[in-house]
Design a protein around this nucleic acid. Structure first.
Length: 606
DNA sequence: CTTAGGG
DNA sequence: CCCTAAG
């Protein structure tokens, strides 16, 4: 491609034995627009230079030259991490010196980054696509995750224009891409991960569990610190393959987006992040924050906005849709088109990116220009009927989900895979499959919605996707939050297992019927689903069953119904308890004698 | 928020 | 299971 210029020589010394990939500036006369490009060169163990592949080459605009140096800079930390070849560093530093501020950033940031982050990093598959350029290098050398982390974070925060990013990203021309990924990363990160990130970023621990807050902080911190060059490399040998694949996917997506509009991508990003935010803070934020934007979001939006019409954030879109549904006319914010949004917009593209995350976008004309926005379906997923309620329901369910998720999370470890939307996305599908009942809305729509929704939930719901959950009982605390993708869907029906019933009965016997919350706490702590109401309902049913059965006695237990056969023993027990309960509660009120009397009577009767 | 009941 | 009224 061009003449290799640069510090390659230095490099070779640096990396003992192992070959290293470096970025070296070279002038490419060929380039029309981009006079300068960086070429990756791998240094073989013997010191030979091996030309980088096409993929490895990055082109940079003149204006972005300085960025290039950033890239170099980026390397520095990297090398440092690896072998800490001082010589090399010096070289790099000299080059970089010009980039004073950047330098500073690195200095501060790297040290602060705790090694622990590795774990986190490893979990994240999505983050690193950008690094594909460096894969070679990465593969060869196991690098501490610090870099990764910075990487991961960075994209999120600086999303917008940071030049370095552009330079670094595999496809220089697709700056948005990296940004997108960044967004995703943050969004997907579990709270724990976010906390880690926070720690890495600020050098201090945080106990805050609010995702939104964490994300904001992190984003802000990154921005403030200037944009740390993301360039770094990714590190996981194991994941390289996966990464690449993902990156490819992403690339595709990006290219798609790019094709549509340069700006489109941007808008897309911002909204998505927003959406996530919504999801998290749903309870409080959703309705309220009509005009509220996330700082990071704002930031990015603003910057991008400069050139193109600012795209509506997802939140905004949601609002619009709400409005639409309500049929309200007032478009306080943007006069453009509420109603049209839903009607006219067409699903532009459905892209499957890393993980299995599905992104659906649609074109919306706003302020005269078309923009691509995440497609948010207004269609109610389940129960099409309840029009008015739909909205409400949605919110409620979100809340519920959130709550449950939280609960379950406490019980469980964070699953490493959580981050993968894959898991989440599959979840809904699995469920729907297992649950014939809801196939009614079989339209393609449904799927999309599900995916989208699931995305929202996924953050909080690392849970396992246990199949129907009924197979295992109590012991395996598998509490699968019923949440699943469909925000509004009613709780997935969960058959009561024998063990559950038993526990319930025990609980009732111990704490008395009516102490559902107690029972739930003590006997069903592991099962986050089963709410006190559920317990109550179940008990009610048991009661009914027990009495229904008693008359015919022997026959009763044999229910032909699909419902599980409740062992007679249990039913009997239930009955007994029921009687007892009926009497006992009054105890306070009635005299012991009377109670006892009643009880006896009943038993006799029975 | 927890219960109790009806749907 | 969901929803809602009550305490």
């Amino acid at each position: 491609m061009g003449t290799v210029v640069g510090t390659v020589d230095d490099c070779r010394e640096m990396f003992e034995g192992s070959s290293q990939t470096r970025i070296t500036p070279f002038s490419s006369t060929n380039q029309i627009e981009n006079p300068v490009a960086y070429k990756l060169v791998r240094v073989a163990g013997d010191g030979r230079l091996v030309p980088a592949t096409d993929e490895e080459i990055l082109e940079v605009n003149e204006t972005d030259m300085h960025i290039a140096s950033d890239a170099c800079q980026t390397l520095q930390p990297y090398t440092d991490q690896v072998k800490s070849p001082l010589e090399y560093n010096e070289e790099m530093l000299q080059k970089v010196e010009q980039e004073e501020r950047l330098d500073n950033v690195h200095g501060s940031q790297i040290p602060s980054t705790p090694p622990d982050t590795n774990i986190q990093c490893s979990n994240e598959n999505i983050l690193f696509e950008e690094d594909q350029v460096h894969h070679e290098a990465l593969l060869q050398e196991p690098v501490p995750c610090n870099i990764n982390q910075s990487n991961k974070i960075e994209p999120c925060s600086n999303a917008e224009d940071s030049p370095e990013e552009t330079a670094l990203s595999p496809a220089a021309q697709k700056p948005d891409f990296s940004r997108v990924r960044g967004e995703i990363c943050l969004d997907n990160l579990p709270i724990k991960a976010l906390q880690e990130t926070f720690r890495a970023t600020f050098g201090r621990e945080t106990t805050v569990k609010d995702k939104t807050w964490l994300k904001r902080r992190i984003a802000m911190g990154l921005i403030n610190s200037c944009d740390v060059p993301t360039t770094n490399l990714t590190i996981k040998d194991n994941k390289l393959v996966g990464k690449q694949e993902k990156s490819n996917d992403l690339t595709d997506v990006v290219s798609k987006d790019m094709g549509d509009e340069g700006g489109a991508t941007n808008s897309k990003d911002a909204p998505s992040s927003t959406g996530h935010v919504n999801g998290h803070s749903n309870a409080s934020g959703h309705g309220l924050s009509s005009h509220h934007y996330c700082p990071s979001e704002d930031y990015s939006s603003e910057q991008r906005a400069a050139k193109r019409v600012r795209k509506p954030t997802r939140r905004y879109i949601e609002e619009l849709s709400e409005t639409d549904e309500k049929q309200q006319n007032d478009k306080t914010m943007i006069p453009s088109k509420d109603p049209r949004l839903s009607e006219k917009s067409e699903v532009r593209s459905i892209s499957v990116s890393s993980g299995k995350r599905v992104t659906v976008t649609r074109m919306v004309s706003l302020a005269g220009s078309e923009i691509e926005v995440p497609y948010v379906s207004h269609v109610r997923r389940s129960r099409p009927r309840e029009n008015i309620m739909a909205l409400m329901e949605c919110h409620n369910s979100c809340l519920e989900d959130k709550a449950s998720a939280g609960e379950s999370n406490l019980n469980l470890r964070l699953s490493p895979s959580q981050l993968n939307s894959e898991v989440v996305n599959q979840d809904p599908m699995v469920k729907s499959a297992s649950r014939p009942v809801q196939k009614e809305f079989a339209t393609s729509h449904k799927n999309h919605e599900e995916h989208i929704l699931s995305e929202v939930d996924q953050d909080m719901e690392p849970e396992h996707i246990d199949s129907s959950g009924n197979s295992s009982d109590e012991n395996n605390n598998n509490d699968m939050p019923i949440i699943q993708g469909g925000a509004l869907r009613r709780k997935h029906h969960r058959a009561w297992t024998l063990s559950e019933v038993t526990k319930l009965v025990d609980g009732v016997s111990k704490y008395g019927a009516g102490k559902w919350s107690e029972i739930k706490k003590l006997s069903f702590s592991s099962q986050s689903y089963r709410t006190s109401v559920d317990l109550k309902d179940k008990w009610r049913n048991l009661l009914k069953a027990s009495f229904a059965q008693s008359p015919s006695n022997s026959m009763g237990s044999l229910k032909k119904h699909g419902s599980m056969h409740i062992p007679m023993q249990i039913l009997v027990r239930v009955r007994e308890l029921a009687e007892k309960q009926a009497l006992v509660p009054p105890v306070s009120k009635a005299t012991g004698d009377s109670n006892r009397k009643e009880k006896e009577t009943r038993s006799d009767f029975l």
